[in-house]
């Protein structure tokens, strides 16, 4: 399945890790963004099949970016990446249109499971 993924996280370390996980599963990482604002720009430009979106980021948070993206592309498939202790933000993200979420620390199998399910679900 040639799934095209955009990775959004302010930590290079996290982006590299997710990239490795996706590459190992044969998905194509079409782009990366380090903040919410960049995420929206990259989304417009690349129209990926799926976005993994960190919540806490500089310039524009993941939730604001999610809301922006949903406003011009309501079918967007965005999976939020959150750390423990961000309950209310995750709830807000799901309410704002996130398809699912994963909680750090990531496990490769779990990440792939969520991504496969969200990608498989009808838009």
């Amino acid at each position: 399945m040639g799934l095209r993924i955009l990775i959004v996280d302010d930590a290079l370390f996290m982006r590299n890790m997710l990239r490795d996980i996706f590459n190992s599963a044969g998905f194509e990482v079409v782009g990366e963004a380090g903040n919410g604002k960049e995420a929206v720009d990259r989304y417009r430009e690349l129209r990926p099949d799926l976005v993994t979106m960190d919540i806490v980021m500089p310039l524009q948070s993941g939730i604001e970016a999610l809301q922006d993206i949903m406003s011009f592309h309501p079918q967007a498939r965005v999976v939020m990446c959150s750390a423990l202790g961000q309950e209310s933000l995750v709830v807000e993200a799901v309410e704002s249109g996130a398809r699912d979420f994963i909680v750090k620390p990531f496990k490769a199998e779990r990440v792939l499971e969520v991504v496969r399910r969200v990608a498989g679900a009808s838009a």
Partner: peptide, 25 residues
């Protein structure tokens, strides 16, 4: 400052460095 601590927490937890993650949290 919140974001910096948050980033360290997420990274450390992913690496399994529990004490580092706990402190950053």
């Amino acid at each position: 400052l919140f974001r910096e601590a948050h980033s360290i927490k997420g990274m450390a937890a992913s690496m399994g460095y529990d004490n580092t993650a706990k402190l950053a949290h």
